[in-house]
C-alpha cells in the first residue's frame, strides 16, 4: 500500500490457527466504524462559500487505541496467569531458532505456546509445530509489526491454556514494533553478532523498550567484528537497568541464563525468585503525557 515504506494497514492481516484454518479479510481487523456513509462527497456543491471555518480542539494521542487494546490484553493474560514474551529482532537474528531450542530444553517444565508474526508464509509456525507445541501464525501482509488488536485475534485463535508461557515472535523489524505495546509481560530484543555492534545506537526506541536483550550467535564471535562490551554500554545508556545475556541458540552457550530469566519472571509456574523482574514500561512506548 505505502510504496515508500512497504507498509499497509490491517486490511491484509490473516490468522492461521493450530488446525491450519485461515481467517482474514473482513469483519475484524479494523473497526471501519467511521460515521461517514459515503466518502466521496465534495464540498462546494452544497452552496457553502467556504467562509464558515471552525476549529475543533481534539487532544487525542495517536496510539491511544492501541494502548487501550494492549491494556485489555494485559488484563486478560494476567487473569489467566499467562506470561507473554514479545520477541523482537531484525529478520534472521534467531528468534525462531531460539524458540525451537527453548521448547526442546524447557518443554517439560513450561507449557509453551507460540504466536508467530510474519508478513507472509507459515514457515515459522511449521517449525514450532514440528517442535510439538501449539502455534498460531499471524500474517501481517504488508504490515511491518504486530499490534494489540492482532495479538487479540491471535489469542482468540490460539486460546492459550491458563498458566501457559506464551511467546510472540514479532515481525522481523527493529523500528516499528517498538512503538506498539501488545500487552505482553516483557519485551525481549534479540540482536545477533553478525549484524554489527551499533544496533542500540541505531535503533534507540527498540532498545529503550526492552526488558531483556539477548545477544545471539555468540558462537560466531571469533569470526566477526562485534564488541560485546561496547554494545552493552550503548544499550545501558538508553536503558540503564536492562538485562543483557550473550547466548547461542544453536551451540547452547549462555542459554542457562535465558532459562533462568524465563523461570524467574514473576508468574512462572514454579515459584521464582525476586530477581530478574521484567517490568512493563509503558512510558517508553507511548508519547509524553
Amino acid at each position: 500500500m505505502c510504496s515508500t515504506c512497504g507498509c499497509s494497514d490491517d486490511a491484509g492481516v490473516r490468522i492461521t490457527d493450530a488446525a491450519g484454518v485461515q481467517t482474514g479479510e473482513h469483519g475484524h481487523a479494523h473497526d471501519h466504524d467511521h460515521p461517514h456513509s459515503h466518502p466521496h462527497e465534495h464540498p462546494g456543491q452544497d452552496g457553502h462559500d467556504g467562509g464558515g471555518h471552525e476549529t475543533i480542539a481534539l487532544e487525542e494521542r495517536l496510539l491511544a487505541k492501541n494502548e487501550l487494546l494492549a491494556a485489555r490484553n494485559r488484563g486478560w493474560l494476567e487473569g489467566r496467569g499467562i506470561r507473554a514474551f514479545n520477541l523482537m529482532s531484525s529478520p534472521g537474528a534467531g528468534k525462531t531458532t531460539l524458540l525451537e531450542r527453548t521448547i526442546r530444553d524447557l518443554g517439560d517444565d513450561l507449557d509453551i505456546q507460540v504466536i508467530e508474526g510474519d508478513q507472509e508464509t507459515s514457515l515459522d509456525a511449521d517449525r514450532i509445530r514440528a517442535a510439538g507445541r501449539p502455534v498460531v501464525q499471524i500474517n501481517t501482509g504488508a504490515g511491518c509489526h504486530l499490534d494489540a488488536q492482532m495479538l487479540r485475534r491471535g489469542l482468540d485463535a490460539l486460546d492459550p491454556a491458563a498458566g501457559s508461557t506464551l511467546f510472540i515472535e514479532n515481525v522481523g523489524n527493529l523500528v516499528c514494533p517498538a512503538l506498539f505495546d501488545l500487552g505482553e509481560t516483557a519485551k525481549v530484543v534479540i540482536i545477533s553478532v553478525t549484524e554489527g555492534d551499533g544496533k542500540p545506537r541505531k535503533y534507540p526506541h527498540m532498545f529503550m523498550a526492552a526488558d531483556l536483550i539477548l545477544i545471539n550467535k555468540a558462537d560466531l564471535l571469533p569470526y566477526v567484528k562485534f564488541d560485546v562490551e561496547d554494545c552493552i554500554r550503548q544499550a545501558r545508556m538508553l536503558n540503564p537497568h536492562v538485562e543483557v545475556l550473550v547466548v547461542s541458540a544453536t551451540a547452547g552457550d549462555g542459554l542457562d541464563g535465558w532459562y533462568g530469566w524465563l523461570t524467574d519472571t514473576p508468574g512462572a509456574p514454579a515459584a521464582g525468585t525476586a530477581g530478574h523482574r521484567p517490568h512493563n514500561r509503558p512510558e517508553a512506548l507511548s508519547d509524553a503525557r
Partner: peptide, 29 residues
C-alpha cells in the same frame, strides 16, 4: 512503516469526532 498505521489512527480519531464534515486542516504534535 509504522507511520502508516499511525496515520490510519489519526484518520479514525478525526473522523470519529467530525463525521462527514469536510476537514481542511489537521494540527498534530
Amino acid at each position: 512503516m509504522h507511520e502508516l498505521s499511525i496515520t490510519q489512527s489519526l484518520l479514525d480519531a478525526v473522523v470519529g469526532r467530525t463525521g462527514e464534515r469536510q476537514v481542511t486542516g489537521v494540527r498534530l504534535k
